[in-house]
Design a protein around this nucleic acid. Structure first.
Lengths: 215, 215
DNA sequence: GTCTATAGCATGATAGAC
DNA sequence: GTCTATCATGCTATAGAC
């Protein structure tokens, strides 16, 4: 059932517990117990809790971001010299995360990542550095798809978009609460479609009048 | 400078440290040191750390939610029997939070609350129960302002909206990162206007075709 | 590679003097 | 109300047997 390799079992167990209780609140003891491994194994395989936390995140974040870029490559290729569709760029940005939830072992990673934002640390800062390439490429793509936005306006709207995404995964229980149990994340296609529809409309909205757009 | 009352000083210090380091990671020792009070004072005034955490949140959340309802009363009154404007309902929902940031003592509460979502607990569940009235009233108002949405579709969109809001306050450093330092939360009016424009467009967007809308 | 045992430290809570 | 001192517990990390 679970992989034989202790190192992988530790990562799986840590990920599961991080989702449930947060990174800080999860002890090495609970991880090694859950992984059916020895307390000392974490330090044997990783050297410290912090390095292990990094490993938990990098394990899925790296392929996830590669997926996003590959997907964006395809979208840009198909568009050629023509206009770039916002919905397509959004699909490249959001799709891989939703797709990830079809893989049983990666399933709870989007939830974990959604929750990470609140536990910001020196630790978190290191993780967000992995987004540099994705950030640069998607800013370019969005600017091309949304010629009515300048960089600061786009930055605000990407921020709202990322918030909506992070919250969708990290706070699914609140969705259930709002909808009186009628909405859950289990319909992944529907959720993705809804998030794209919502944020495409938000991104396309005209910029409201104001004085200074740089703050 | 700081209020003379120890109890208040403890709440202020706790709030400040919770924003910086998270609730779980903040020790009673650091709180009492920051508040210039004795280690035993937390247990003297509150009985336990958990009760104090509740107090930190209730202190601002209660007036905040009352503000939202009063603001919504006014919006509904002005609309009379006519149509209800989405932007006005959004103003009632979001405005009080932004307004709160003008009060020096409450300033970092929206950030704290934005970050809370990721530290969900039995503790958090109790806090979210304070939203019952606000939730009921705003769902009604949004349904009236957005007749093309049914409850499940609205619930999804409110979820996206709350995510964007929580992230705006809780992850302002990421906004700075995306915009290469050009965007900050310091222009509150601008931020509120942008968030309303973005989410009004998202809420108004037509519902994309799909089979089942209940999941 | 896996285990036990434990060092060294920080935590929340409390008892009791003032 | 405020303080010191301390308890019991839990934590990360490591040393060293097997």
């Amino acid at each position: 059932m679970s992989p034989a390799d202790t190192r992988e079992r530790l990562l799986d167990a840590a990920q599961r517990l991080f989702v449930q209780n947060g990174v800080r609140a999860t002890s090495l003891r609970s991880i090694t117990t859950e992984a059916d491994a020895n307390l000392a194994s974490v330090n044997y395989y990783f050297g410290s809790k912090e390095i292990m936390v990094q490993a938990v995140f990098s394990r899925w974040l790296e392929p996830l971001n590669k997926d996003r870029l590959k997907w964006l490559d395809r979208v840009e290729e198909e568009a050629g010299d023509g206009p770039l569709e916002v919905e397509a760029v959004l699909g490249a940005f959001l799709g891989p995360t939703f797709h990830m939830m079809r893989d049983e072992r990666a399933r709870d990673f989007p939830c974990l990542f959604g929750r990470l934002h609140a536990e910001s640390d020196e630790l978190t800062a290191a993780i967000f550095e992995q987004f540099h390439d994705v950030q640069v490429r998607f800013i370019q793509a969005f600017l091309r798809a949304l010629p009515h936005l300048n960089l600061p306006e786009l930055a605000w709207r990407m921020h709202f978009l990322i918030g909506a995404m992070a919250y969708t995964f990290g706070a699914a229980d609140i969705l259930k609460f709002i909808s009186k149990g009628q909405c859950t994340l289990s319909d992944l296609e529907g959720a993705l479609k809804r998030l794209i529809a919502f944020s495409a409309a938000g991104l396309k909205a005209p910029v409201p009048n104001q004085g200074d757009t740089t703050q």
